[in-house]
Design a protein around this nucleic acid. Structure first.
Lengths: 337, 337
DNA sequence: TGCCCCAATGCAAGCGCTTACAGCGCGCCG
DNA sequence: CGGCGCGCTGTAAGCGCTTGCATTGGGGCA
């Protein structure tokens, strides 16, 4: 029913080889022939069968995108950016999410799902273990990490440490002394995961200001709104005298603000809150944040895999800037009564 | 390098045909043989080449998901739900977004991208024209629409009309008489698009209460935060006496609240706001809304395509309920001074 | 004991392309 | 004027599976 390459060849009066070459802009095809083939192909509505192409050429023109979630701010924006640049260059996007919700420990990445199915892999914000990365590399395709990375893999990310440093310094500069930190999950212990870097930045900023970072100042918010809310409650229980909080994501920061509201506390009167991301809804609560361009990171990473597929040696790491967006959720602490 | 079916066949001492049948649980394979093949395959890390399978069988085990955006609440949740159920049944998800931003008029859906590439199609919240649907149907695969639908296509959606009716009645019940409506884009004129149904619901609720719905009460918010904000400004210019607004999405509703804040107006004191969705950040501003389960709709739609692929006759339409979540953005109008 | 049938397996022909290699004709150089 | 090289095109061998059909070997039944 659908026209195949043979139909085009017959209609154009050439061999299938010529059709194949003409349509793919390969050299050694007479321009007149090429045009004729193009015209006939268009007329017949010919579209090459991707499976046949992959089977014959060994290339799939598909990039696998591995992400723990697609409905969180950072992830959906990264995927959006990546998808657009990939599609613009004729690549398909195969989406793989992990059911992180279902199991307590994160399921391991199974490279078999991607075997012979993609030409490259994008891993979004999911700190993998060394052996998972190795497994992915056995696929024999370029791999680019977004929002995390190590093991010498090509990475697009923030300066997490510097971002946390800047955020915390902002609070310190306002006069805060007891500054809490809402980080990710207790499982995020890998030294290459963003929450760990952000925590280190917070700690460094505190230390340089001569402040302590006792355990009760740090809580886990799991990077979502509800987690941020719950962890803020915990934080206030543990350290009722905190006057400011640095949350590792805007979603957690907004959760923290909800918790403060639950308790009838004023932001920033009683507690200042700063996040990381630049979530568009942050303005709703006047959230001060370290904004990043997630979609651009997705696009950049996509371009990197494509470059790598084309044989270009990529930079080892692309670091994206983060900018302080000061709104109303941060302010000086209330003067001691 | 990677083991092929021949390697497995050789190692198991059977033909490739038997390997193929054994591994796919086809009948007419001795159980002992099947187990041996399974064991050998696992040992060799054999994974069938998807391209070869597709080429030989004509089935791709891939579902195309067409969506205008993936970083908006409704869309990302639908896709998340769909992806999980598809993957659980061994289907891949090919993501297609449309660059709605780039052109003024929406680019047309091009079925060629999907030709011979998928076994089914999910169209998320993108009201297509009749001929686009027809074009998609020429692919010869099941098609399921989510969040919109007509032309006799299988659809998973809300009762948009009823939802709008309930939302508007809520406002009317509080005593509001001048109730604005923020709808989608001015281009959404197709009678099968959700914004049109929601508008109709608003109009009906107004009419049944003996209220007018003059043009100045209706503005376009394009379904995003900024659009909601801008359109609320417009609305207040056109009709300074509105005391309540029904927005067709939570994101627009939150934008509207931002606009009201811009002007120093109180919510709900000066203007009540109600949305549709159940966005998790709605609580930040106490948004009253008609909540829906977007991820479940995605999952349901995914199951429907799979059923259709399996030959099951699906229901013509699955309508999801919506529930009023009353928070603090709605209240009685201020008594006349 | 002979026959038929069926479960279990193998054989081999594709599926629709890509691509190495061969072939053909022509202009050009020696 | 013959040969060489080059530009263009065709031939055909896969790519790694699925599947219709043929084949084999028992077991049940007459």
């Amino acid at each position: 029913m659908a026209a195949g390459i043979d139909d085009v060849a017959r209609a154009a009066g050439v061999s299938t080889a010529t059709v194949s070459r003409a349509l793919r802009d390969l050299p050694n095809v007479n321009e007149a022939t090429r045009n004729r083939v193009r015209r006939v192909a268009a007329q017949l509505g010919y579209v090459a069968s991707p499976s046949a192409v992959s089977l014959a050429s060994g290339r799939t023109r598909t990039i696998g995108v591995i992400s723990p979630w697609i409905n969180r701010w950072f992830f959906s924006n990264v995927i959006d950016g990546a998808e657009r640049t990939l599609r613009a260059q004729g690549f398909d996007v195969l989406l793989y999410t992990f059911d992180v919700r279902r199991s307590t420990s994160r399921p391991r990445v199974d490279p078999d799902v991607l075997r012979r199915r993609v030409d490259g892999v994008l891993v979004v914000g999911l700190p993998l273990d060394q052996d998972e990365v190795d497994a992915l590399l056995t696929l024999g395709h370029p791999l680019v990490c977004i929002g995390w990375g190590d093991f010498g893999q090509v990475t697009v990310r923030l300066d997490d440490h510097g971002t946390a440093l800047a955020a915390t310094r902002h609070l310190v500069g306002l006069g805060h002394r007891r500054i809490g930190h809402i980080t990710g999950s207790p499982d995020d212990v890998a030294p290459w995961s963003p929450p760990v870097h952000r925590e280190a930045g917070w700690r460094e900023a505190m230390t340089e200001a001569g402040l302590e970072t006792p355990p009760e100042l740090e809580v886990h918010g799991n990077f979502d709104v509800e987690g941020g809310r719950a962890s803020m409650h915990t934080l206030l229980d543990q350290a009722p005298d905190v006057t400011a909080v640095f949350a590792a994501s805007d979603e957690m920061a907004m959760g923290a603000i909800l918790a403060l509201r639950d308790l009838g506390l004023d932001v920033p009167g009683d507690v200042s809150v700063i996040g990381v991301d630049g979530h568009e809804l942050g303005e709703l609560v006047g959230l001060t944040t370290m904004a990043q361009a997630a979609d651009e990171q997705g696009a950049a990473a996509a371009q990197l895999v494509l470059d790598m597929i084309a044989g270009v040696t990529p930079p080892r790491e692309v670091v994206y800037p983060t900018v302080l967006v000061e709104r109303s959720s941060t302010g000086p602490p209330r003067p001691a009564a």
